[in-house]
């Protein structure tokens, strides 16, 4: 029997950019409905797979289990829940051994937490916010059905997924070494504090490295994407240093946040091979990962490089292209 994992992050998509920009929010009620739809989508192959659901403090997972169609066997994973990102990691570690595919409801941060532990298990990532790069805005039912088609072997996961890159920062500080990994982007910011986490003022970004660059994305991958396109499955990434637009070597227009297009000054940039780092000297600043401020630094030397080792991300449309014919059923007489 194949197993589909389901990860739901009740905290995802709640940042302050809803106030300062145009980002919208998916509340817990909507997340419950999405999770319910995922369970319903699994019904396309209900006889051959079960759904294992991560519990969460908001009861979204428990709801998906109780509302799953009668034909779908769904159970809550037995793990402790603290209401922290550690919950996601704990669930992902279990799914590494127990699941054939995992559906993730969350943002870039949730996918990053899953990626840390889930190994090669392919992820069907469903965005629960507007401010994401990695997960796609896809209906939960579609995601559940795609996961079922992969889990049961109707579709070969290798043919419909990519190996996503990551970005790593190694910060040498007076108090020791700190490491930080981002899924899509890692930024160096000239601000004092982590604060509310969101990057509120794009002009505070000194530079960064991205594992993917495309103009149609939001945030630092959009900035890099205005310079060059770098596919997430291509090894390496793009590094850049930014400055005031009026003094910079060149400027680009980028979608820096939902609802916000800015002219950004670029001092220098270049494509980076995997593990090729660029160095930032940070007297005082903050590192951001995937659009959120994460680590305050003083007197640090930070080497940032794209690395391999990212998660396998499923292209949902490709699943249904590959599955053409698999959903035909006998005509009722």
């Amino acid at each position: 029997m194949a197993t589909i994992g389901l990860v739901v992050n009740p905290a995802a998509g709640r940042d302050i950019r809803r106030l300062t920009g145009g980002a919208s929010v998916v509340d817990d009620y909507a997340k419950r409905r999405i999770a319910e739809c995922v369970a319903a989508g699994v019904e396309v192959a209900a006889a051959e797979c079960t759904l294992a659901v991560m519990p969460d403090s908001a009861g979204i997972g428990a709801h998906a289990v109780s509302e799953a169609p009668a034909a779908v066997t769904a159970d809550l994973l037995e793990i402790p829940i603290e209401g922290e990102p550690a919950d996601t990691r704990r669930a992902a570690a279990r799914f590494r051994d127990e699941a054939d595919v995992v559906v993730v409801l969350g943002g870039d941060g949730t996918n990053r937490d899953v990626a840390h532990e889930v190994g090669d298990v392919p992820l069907v990532s469903v965005s629960t916010g507007t401010n994401n790069v990695v997960p796609t805005a896809v209906d939960g039912t579609v995601a559940g059905a795609a996961a079922a088609l992969i889990a049961t072997g109707a579709v070969d996961p290798d043919a419909v997924s990519i190996d996503h890159g990551m970005v790593e920062a190694v910060a040498d500080t007076p108090t020791g070494e700190s490491r930080l990994q981002g899924l899509a982007t890692l930024g160096v910011l000239d601000v004092e504090f982590v604060g509310t986490r969101a990057i509120l003022d794009p002009s505070t970004v000194v530079g960064g490295v991205v594992s993917r660059a495309f103009s149609a994305e939001v945030g630092l991958s959009s900035v890099a994407g205005a310079l060059t396109t770098h596919r997430p499955e291509t090894p390496g990434g793009v590094g850049f240093r930014l400055g005031p637009p009026e003094a910079a070597a060149e400027t680009v227009r980028a979608i820096v946040a939902p609802g916000v297009i800015e002219r950004v000054g670029v001092e220098k940039w270049r494509p980076l091979a995997a593990d090729e780092s660029i160095r930032f000297e940070v007297d005082r600043g903050v590192l951001s990962v995937d659009g959120e401020r994460e680590l305050e630094l003083q007197n640090a030397v930070v080497d940032v490089a794209p690395i391999d080792d990212g998660p396998r991300i499923v292209d949902v449309d490709a699943v249904f292209v590959a599955a053409e014919g698999a959903l035909r059923t006998d005509r009722l007489e």
Binding site: I16, L19, T20, E192, F193, V194, G195, T196, R197, L200
Partner: peptide, 11 residues
């Protein structure tokens, strides 16, 4: 986190 509260209320 006093800095998070400060920033949020400032906005």
């Amino acid at each position: 986190d006093v800095t998070a509260v400060y920033e949020a209320v400032a906005e």
